[in-house]
């Protein structure tokens, strides 16, 4: 079991100058205030991340506005089945992440560790699928912007518009999925750190705001993919 939260009375005894459990920083009045401060900072960061990706989505909107037929034709070069699998994988990882936070709320250390491991596994599966998608595109020469080098005629598109601008589509595709992929990679790294802390018994029902805040980050990563998938893979 993870260490149970310590009441004020217990921890005051024998600790000179220490006004609470050891995970309560000295500049906070109590854990409630400490946790609320942490959560407030994280929600502000969430607002920033939303605005960050909104710029990329706007780029997509502008690209699609000026080159609608290009987007329609070029999306056939993306495998929507892989995209759908990735969507399900990320949704499941969101579930296990939320369950990990719930496990901390109920002082269940083993469940925290198990759920974090599952989330990490899902994230890795996502990146592996992404790797296969990217390497296939590099192999065909489907590259962003001016680096697009595939022979359009040999791609087997059902219809090629007169003003076909595949560089635009793949520029948008790689920037958006790339930025998202970097977020997943960073997430995996952070999760490994949280896993080590959880294994150590750092988290309990009173002190798990780090886990909760990371959960917010991970759900946002999932949120972005929820929007990316239909806009990139399911253009009809």
């Amino acid at each position: 079991m993870s260490q149970k939260p310590q009441s004020h009375a217990d921890s005051n005894a024998g600790h000179s100058g220490h006004h609470g459990p050891k995970y309560l920083a000295h500049h906070f009045f109590d854990m409630a205030q400490q946790n609320a401060s942490g959560k407030l900072g994280m929600w502000l960061f969430m607002a920033q991340e939303v605005l960050f990706f909104s710029g990329l989505f706007l780029c997509y909107a502008a690209g699609r506005y000026f080159y609608p037929e290009t987007f329609l034709a070029a999306h056939e070069l993306l495998d929507w089945k892989l995209g759908a699998v990735n969507t399900v994988v990320l949704l499941f990882s969101s579930l296990t992440m939320a369950l990990a936070v719930r496990a901390a709320q109920t002082n269940n250390r083993k469940a925290i560790v198990t759920n974090l491991l599952l989330t990490i596994l899902c994230a890795c599966i996502f990146m592996v699928i992404k790797y296969f998608e990217y390497s296939h595109k590099f192999h065909l020469g489907l590259l962003p912007g001016k680096y697009f080098s595939a022979d359009v005629a040999s791609l087997g598109l059902s219809s090629v518009p007169a003003d076909f601008a595949p560089g635009v589509f793949f520029g948008v595709y790689f920037i958006m999925t790339g930025a998202h992929g970097i977020h997943v990679l960073v997430g995996i790294g952070l999760m490994i750190w949280l896993l080590m802390r959880a294994q150590r018994g750092d988290f309990n029902s009173e002190n798990h705001v780090a886990l909760e805040n990371y959960g917010l980050y991970w759900h946002l990563v999932d949120l972005i993919w929820i929007y990316l998938f239909p806009l990139l893979y399911l253009v009809r």
């Binding site: 579930l95 959960g215 759900h219 946002l220 949120l223 929820i226 929007y227 239909p230």
Partner: peptide, 19 residues
């Protein structure tokens, strides 16, 4: 429709998973 469905999914994630 795609954005509408995605928004419903996003709302569920934000309200419940993000608590």
């Amino acid at each position: 429709v795609a954005i509408a469905v995605a928004t419903v999914k996003a709302t569920l994630v934000v309200l419940y998973f993000m608590h």
